[in-house]
Design a protein around this nucleic acid. Structure first.
Length: 483
DNA sequence: CGCATACGCGCC
DNA sequence: AAACGGCGCGTTTGCG
């Protein structure tokens, strides 16, 4: 079977109780691999774009895709990872994940009361009602009507005063209304983005079914929509209440498996930095190591504050962060931030070397590839607009890292699914969600321990890097209380 | 009225 | 002066 959007077709077949084809080829996925930034993957568009004809021939498109996948050395990734993933995603989407509708209803009501009360506080303090959800109106109230000092407050792209979290935090002590706004924002966000939609989207069995977009990112990751189950709040009291509405079926427990520092391990492997490799190989705390290096202190003398900064630095490096951004997220001055970044690249020189190499590659070739041949076009790498070129360079630095991490998770999903099938655990061990570096399962309680013993090593051996992959396992009775 | 955009914010 | 990679989605606002 050769077609576009096979996942949807597989779902239909499964709903009808029909068997899935043994061999299949998804042209949408194929063309996405060839150029993941291509917005459209419909046959009409692709025929015209690549075959220069208005007539649509799946055969011709398939032949073309096959030729190009071979040329780009993407066949293995396509055949062994992306294609086998399709029926797995179809199964996950069909299965869905259960939400506790009573708990959602109660949370909705509770949030509603809190939000109403906060709105009253805000109107009273502001001297009259306005639309708190309108950044424009809020900005006028804060900086004109209440005349709060706008010192140190950034403007938005459109030129208006920003009212985002950062702004509100900096002016928090300048007026009592600000802390009401902050709390209102948090609760309104939770209610409107999560609590209300989840109730709408739950089916008659109380399960919500996300849709995974296999061709939705430029780096190789999956994305999730309608609802997006990859951005459910985590941490914080209210966020945890939201997460806790996700529950396993009766007789099952949730088990989550998350890769520890997968992107940093990938980075260490790609650049071959001896210190980083040693740290991961020995199971050391990478953020402590970084802190010890950039602060020039022994590991034992690293304070929590030093570690916190080092952690920000480590993540930032993967994204191609500059001093400005580091200063902003860390609270350091620009000069201090720059000093630490320079120190970081001095201590981890191979990271710098690798970044320069990949940037040069992007400039020379107009694209980058990761270890599995996954590619991303970056035609702006040679742009004469500095901002545009810098953006492409950051993408060049990030894609091989994020993309390889994505490959590893996908390979793990394929291998785990195969083992579940081999053991005839299809109904007992259900892969429910994939959240970039984490897989969430619901597992029948009687085989909980056994299933963990099977899944964890498969994930840890999914891919061979220069450093070990480690997977943390947690279990729980809701998604909010995994331990 | 629907639609696109700006803004803001949730996650990895 | 200088915006760190990748996403999806809510509300508001202005447009046709």
């Amino acid at each position: 079977m050769t077609d576009f959007d096979l996942k949807e077709k597989f779902k239909t077949l499964r709903r009808e109780g029909a068997a899935l084809p043994k061999t299949f080829c998804d042209l949408g996925v194929a063309f996405w691999l060839l150029n993941p930034d291509e917005a459209k993957h419909e046959p009409e568009y692709l025929s015209e774009r690549y075959l220069h004809t208005k007539s649509i021939s799946k055969k011709a498109l398939a032949a073309y895709a096959e030729k190009r996948l071979k040329e780009y050395k993407l066949e293995a990734l396509f055949r062994d990872v992306e294609l086998p993933l399709i029926p797995i995603l179809a199964e996950m989407e069909l299965r869905g994940i259960a939400v506790d509708r009573k708990a959602l209803q109660a949370l909705d009501a509770e949030l509603g009361k809190k939000i109403t009360a906060l709105a009253k506080d805000i109107y009273r303090t502001a001297g009259g009602p306005f639309n708190i959800n309108s950044p424009k109106q809020l900005g006028q109230i804060l900086f004109e009507k209440l005349a709060i000092s706008g010192e140190g407050v950034k403007k938005t792209k459109g030129g208006a005063v920003s009212t985002n979290i950062d702004t509100l935090m900096t002016i928090k002590e300048r007026h009592p209304i600000v802390k009401y706004i902050l709390e209102y924002r948090e609760l309104f966000k939770l209610q409107s983005t999560y609590v209300k939609p989840l109730q709408e989207l739950a089916d008659t069995n109380g399960r919500v079914h996300t849709t995974y977009l296999q061709t939705g990112t430029s780096t190789g990751r999956l994305s999730s929509q309608n609802p997006n189950l990859q951005n459910i709040p985590t941490g914080g009291e209210w966020a945890n209440r939201v997460r806790s509405v996700f529950v396993p079926e009766k007789g099952y427990a949730f088990v989550s498996f998350d890769y520890s520092q997968i992107e940093l391990r990938v980075l260490a492997s790609l650049c071959g930095d001896p210190q980083m490799i040693k740290a991961f190989t020995e199971g050391a705390d990478i953020h402590r190591l970084t802190a010890a290096n950039v602060f020039n202190v022994p590991i034992a003398n690293v304070t929590p504050e030093m570690r916190r900064l080092a952690k920000t630095l480590n993540f930032g490096v993967v994204y191609g962060m500059g001093a400005q951004a580091f200063a902003k997220t860390s609270g350091l001055s620009f000069t201090e931030a720059k000093k630490f970044i320079d120190e970081y690249f001095h201590d981890f020189a191979q990271v710098k070397t690798w970044q320069e190499e990949i940037k040069a590659f992007a400039r020379t070739h107009g694209y980058v590839v990761n270890r599995n041949g996954r590619r991303r076009l970056l035609l702006h790498a040679t742009s004469m607009f500095r901002g545009e070129a810098a953006e492409a360079e950051r993408a060049a630095i990030n894609m091989p890292v994020q993309g390889l991490a994505a490959d590893i998770v996908k390979i793990a999903m394929v291998n785990v699914a195969a083992e579940i099938r081999r053991r005839k655990w299809d109904d007992a061990v259900r892969m429910l969600l994939t959240i970039h570096d984490e897989l969430l399962f619901e597992v029948r309680k009687d085989i909980l321990k056994e299933a963990i013993g099977v899944i964890q090593p498969i994930m840890e051996r999914a891919y061979t890097l220069e450093v070990p992959l480690t997977v943390n396992v947690k279990t729980g009775t809701t998604w909010g209380d995994l331990a």
